[in-house]
Structure formats: C-alpha cells, structure tokens
Design a protein around this nucleic acid. Sequence first.
DNA 1: TGACAATATTCGTTATAACGGATATATTTA
DNA 2: TAAATATATCCGTTATAACGAATATTGTCA
Lengths: 154, 154
Amino acid sequence: MRRSTHTETKTRPAPCLEESAFLEMSRTTDLLSRRVSLLLRTEELSSTQYNVLRILRGVQEGLPCGEIGSRMITRDPDITRLLDRLEKRSLISRCRETKDRRMVMARITPEGLQLLSRMDEPVREAHHAQLGHLGREHLKALIGLLQTARAEVV
Amino acid sequence: MRRSTHTETKTRPAPCLEESAFLEMSRTTDLLSRRVSLLLRTEELSSTQYNVLRILRGVQEGLPCGEIGSRMITRDPDITRLLDRLEKRSLISRCRETKDRRMVMARITPEGLQLLSRMDEPVREAHHAQLGHLGREHLKALIGLLQTARAEVV
DNA sequence: TGACAATATTCGTTATAACGGATATATTTA
DNA sequence: TAAATATATCCGTTATAACGAATATTGTCA
C-alpha cells in the first residue's frame, strides 16, 4: 500500500464508472486494431482508407463526398484529398451526378472490391482469433450494450 | 428488398459476431472520443499526449521511455520526439536514472498535473453525459465484458 | 579487457490529419 | 435575373505518425 494516499486522491480522482467504461473501450479497440492495421499495411492501406472503402462497398450506387465526410467527421477538403489518393490507385471512381450536378458521387471500383475481398478472410480470422473466446452469448451481450451506448449519445 | 442478393453475398460476406463486435466497438469509441478531443483541443493537447500524461500521473516515480513506448506500441525514436514536445512545454521532465544510467526517466511535472486536473472535471462530465444513461448495472457489465475480451488477446 | 546487448537519442524521410481560406460550379429562392 | 446557398474543389500551412538508419552511452558477460 502506498503512503501517499493523501496526495494521490488530490491529483488522481477516483474514476467513475462512465470513465472506466470509456477507458476500457479505448484500450480494447486499440489492442484489437493493431492486428488489423498490420494486415492493412500489407495492402498499403490506412485504416481511414479501409473504412471508406467498406462504406462504399455497402452502397453500390455510390455516395456524395459530403455524405462520406459526415460519416467520419472530417472536413470536406480533407475528404477530397482522401478520395484523390484512393482514385489515383483506381480503388474508387468519381463522377458528377446528373440530377444535382453539384454533387460528385464516389463509387468503389472492381479493383477496390477485389482488394476488400482479399482482406475479408484474414480480417475475419483476426477477429475470430482475438474475440472468439468470448462465445456467442457474451458477444451478443457486448454488441447490444455498445449499441445501446451509442443510441443515446448526443 | 434488393434484387442483387446474388452479387452482394459475393462481394460482402455476412459479418460474423466477432467482426460485428469489433465494428461496434470502433464506432462507439470513435463517437465518444470526439467530445473528448474537443476538450483536449482547448489545451492544445493531442490524445496521444493526454494519454502519456495520464500514464505518468499514475506513476510518481516516473517511467523509462521504453516503458511508455511499449504501452502504446510506438517506436522508440517517436516516443523520444513525443516526450520532447511535452518537455518543451514543461509538462514532463526527464532525468537519467542513477542506477542504470542507460535509462531516462520521464516524470510528470506540477504543470502537467495542473493541466490534467484542469481537464478532469470536464472530461468526467463528458463521459457522464454520454454514457450515464446506461446505468450502473449496464456499465459494469460492459466493463466486465471488455476486460474479458482483452484478457485473452494474443 | 573486449564483444555484445540494451537504452535512448539524432537525423532524415514520407504520408497524412487537421486547419483556414478562397474558388468553381450548380442549384434554389427572392 | 440577381442573390443566396450547397457542394466540391484547390491552395497552402502546420503538426504529427510512422518508418529506416545511424550513433552515443551504459551495462553485462564471456
């Protein structure tokens, strides 16, 4: 036991449950992400880029740049450059919308889809290896709690 | 209902529970972090820097640089520069250990402690506002699951 | 003592996130 | 039509993460 309980309570307040939950979440996400990042590096992809590609895979019609930005709280000019980099590698394509010609739709290309599908199996394996020990019930409980947590965040 | 079920199953495999759990975790951490990042910005602190300061607050004796690095999987040279920036602002101090003179101990300074304590209340409020609706029982369950998840990660 | 290992540093590089500001284009509305 | 708005872009800036390579200092061990 430490002798300096007195000063410690002054400098380091006892964490409340909400804070602990956040810390646990950060640590766990961090730890689990490491393995995925290693996988991504083999394809020279940042996790932001991977993220965008997966979002676009979910939407065959494509998404306007602004929509992508709002899903990640990134400023418009930076989304443009992010998409620039992906387009240069032919992983996405852009074309101006015919209806509202202000908008530019970003779509994932066949190359992009291929890249993603190359990653699918290893990524899934990584997650299975890292979280499989929890078992179905615990996993479901965890997912449910996280969804609940996010549902009411302002 | 979409017509292209056929192609979709090919391009986007149904997510397994482990993968969903990871995604939920990432999204939630991401969402919750935004508010904290805004707070940190008022002190011109990156979340990595905040992280290091909090680690050091927990260890009055200080930590060797390498130890800090291993807690965050960052290469040694980059830790050095990270600490450089913090030292320049007098938030930490460094001094060579007398026993093993290869090691340099990093300690948080009174200024660093002050800064942290300025953040404590707002950070806690942010977490409370964002996660308080879960209630004690759910929070405890969440914390427990996350710890279990991390316990066996290789 | 001499060879090796451990620790931290310095230096240089590249890519990117994040920000501010301005501009081009197209749409909507007064 | 003219003004205001929305969308995306271009430009430049700074700070930093991430990587490789080399060096200095100290400790350990044959």
